[in-house]
């Protein structure tokens, strides 16, 4: 522990020295805007008909990188499922669907009512954020997370059985795969037309409209599907695991 702290101290001294030098030589506040940001701020409306520059960067200018990030998300969700599934199988029949629900603490009425009242607005808001990423702040990543909180609210209001009933496990797994695959396939459509990967092949439409941006809203929806399904799968795996632990103890 002592050696580790010494190494940490040395590292921090080095960091402070180097980082301090860098900060001292940085241009002052406001003078530092990269040529990329200027170009994108100037071009994203005339070139892509998209009013939210962040979405244009995410799903178009930097779309190939985002595809890679999406596969990181996909891989870690799969990894979590594999790790926790094995644990569940070792438990034997206890973790099966027929196992009774050992929930000692019922949520109070106030929690139940508030959580259930929030489910509908959460779903609507999530769908809105996913589909309007090209116009206002939002897009697949943010909206997907909002959508995934809806089943969690149901769990909060009731129990895991209800959570399982409203989220078909097979359907969620398929959604996760389709969301990830759809992104890659939309990008590949341009290849068929012998154009570079992820080139826009759809009409760009009137900027400010819901269909503006060509393939950007489609990619956003694919991402939203994958993120939402991924988070619900994570919730499912952890809740299942927790309940199996509780049963065996």
């Amino acid at each position: 522990m002592k050696l580790r702290l010494t190494l940490f101290g040395l590292g921090i001294c080095g960091l402070v020295a180097l980082y301090g030098t860098v900060i001292a030589h940085m241009p002052g506040p406001g003078k530092m805007h990269s040529p990329y940001s200027r170009a994108i701020n100037k071009l994203c409306v005339p070139q892509r008909h998209v009013t939210d520059a962040v979405t244009a960067v995410n799903f178009d200018y930097r779309g190939f990188d985002t595809l890679g990030e999406e596969f990181i998300l996909f891989a870690s969700v799969m990894g979590t499922l594999v790790l926790l599934r094995e644990a569940a199988e070792n438990k034997g029949p206890l973790s099966g669907d027929s196992a009774s629900e050992p929930r000692n603490v019922r949520p109070t009425e106030a929690v139940r009512v508030t959580a259930l009242a929030l489910v509908g607005p959460t779903v609507v808001f999530g769908v809105y954020v996913v589909t309007h990423g090209q116009l206002t702040p939002g897009g697949g990543f943010q909206g997907g997370v909002v959508l995934a909180t809806a089943p969690l609210l149901v769990y909060l209001a009731d129990d895991f059985k209800t959570f399982k009933r409203i989220t078909s496990h097979a359907l969620i797994e398929i959604s996760e795969a389709v969301g990830g695959g759809m992104y890659a396939v939309i990008g590949a459509i341009a290849l068929v037309l012998s154009r570079p990967y992820m080139t826009n092949v759809l009409p760009l439409a009137q900027s400010g409209g819901i269909a503006s941006g060509g393939i950007i809203p489609l990619i956003s929806i694919a991402t939203g599907l994958e993120v939402a399904a991924g988070f619900v799968l994570l919730l499912y795996a952890f809740l299942q695991k927790t309940l199996a632990e509780r049963e065996s103890s």
């Binding site: 990269s34 994108i40 990181i72 870690s76 969700v77 990543f141 994570l234």
Partner: peptide
């Protein structure tokens, strides 16, 4: 107008980070 490139980097990273923490 603030730089959209770094904001785009951040928002994907936040979501990916959450799943990596889950892993």
């Amino acid at each position: 107008i603030v730089d959209p490139v770094v904001q785009a980097l951040m928002l994907t990273d936040i979501v990916v980070e959450t799943t990596v923490v889950a892993l």
